[in-house]
């Protein structure tokens, strides 16, 4: 279960939240002015991003406020949360290293389970204490 940081309440358990799908898809101001295709695009079509994804969450068992978040869908890590109506903040996306386009660590992809010596830092090669972190 994830920890999600509500911008209004702070970090809370995922079970307090409801997911709201992709963010920044505004309801058209004048739906009748749209073609059937344009309307269907709004109603039915969503992107399915691997990597940094802007999405909506509702703190439904807390303050009940909706907010936006940036989450890396390949690692489930939240990179930012921000208010409804705000633009997504700039974040440093992780370098994608696996052939499938995932970060070096955290995705659970086969390619990231074992690292080679070439991938290790000098500190990791010499460090004896603590296994990492």
């Amino acid at each position: 279960m994830l920890i999600i940081t509500c911008p209004y309440c702070g970090p809370r358990e995922q079970s307090e939240f409801h997911y709201g799908g992709e963010a920044h898809i505004a309801r058209p101001a004048d739906p009748q002015a749209l073609t059937d295709g344009q309307w269907a695009e709004f109603v039915f079509m969503r992107s399915n991003v691997k990597g940094v994804f802007a999405e909506r969450w509702n703190h439904s068992s807390g303050c009940r406020k909706w907010f936006n978040a940036l989450r890396d869908t390949s690692t489930d890590r939240f990179l930012a949360v921000y208010e409804m109506g705000a633009k997504p903040p700039q974040i440093d996306a992780p370098e994608l290293r696996t052939p499938a386009g995932e970060p070096l660590i955290g995705s659970g992809n086969d390619e990231t389970k074992v690292m080679t010596e070439a991938e290790m830092t000098e500190a990791e090669m010499t460090e004896d204490l603590g296994g990492g972190s």
Partner: peptide
């Protein structure tokens, strides 16, 4: 989801990066 490395000295996989 930590990463392992293979260590020849102990002939086993051990944690490399958390």
């Amino acid at each position: 989801r930590g990463q392992l490395r293979y260590d020849d000295d102990i002939a086993g996989f051990r944690p490399a990066r958390s």
